[in-house]
């Protein structure tokens, strides 16, 4: 079986946002969801568009235009959904992330997730 396409961290965020939004995945909602996932970092809308274009070129996602809506000045939304190749790539990335989490947890313990890293590290040192 062919290896899934490798994707970067920001691409993972965008694809996770598309997956979690389902049929409501378009520019504004994807950006909002990516901002939530990327906290505390802020994310620009333009970076999300550039990533969506790149993912589409890699055939990991597919897009289509909806009907124009008055709330958007009579302009259409471009909706996105994951392609099968994209689902596989995201699945592979999520498995890798899980393995990282497991490895970190084995060394630092489950408390590593309960507080922010700096305060957790200083607590460990004392």
């Amino acid at each position: 079986m062919a290896h899934p396409v490798s994707i970067g961290q920001f691409e993972q965020l965008v694809m996770t946002a598309i997956l979690s939004l389902g049929e409501n995945a378009y520019g504004v909602t994807i950006h909002a969801q990516v901002e939530k996932l990327a906290q505390p970092k802020s994310v620009s809308l333009g970076a999300v568009y550039a990533t969506l274009d790149r993912l589409e070129d890699k055939r990991l996602i597919v897009s289509w235009l909806s009907d124009p809506t008055p709330a958007r000045g009579g302009r259409s939304k471009r909706h996105y959904r994951l392609e099968e190749l994209g689902e596989r790539a995201l699945h592979e990335s999520a498995l890798t992330a899980r393995r990282i989490c497991d490895a970190v947890e084995r060394i630092w313990g489950v408390n590593a997730w309960n507080q922010n890293l700096r305060s957790w590290k200083s607590a460990r040192q004392h």
Binding site: Y26, L45, Y49, G73, S76
Partner: peptide, 13 residues
């Protein structure tokens, strides 16, 4: 090529 949806998104925000 991206005018329609980008402008719509900016309008929505």
């Amino acid at each position: 090529a991206c005018r329609e949806h980008v402008l719509g998104d900016l309008w929505e925000r």
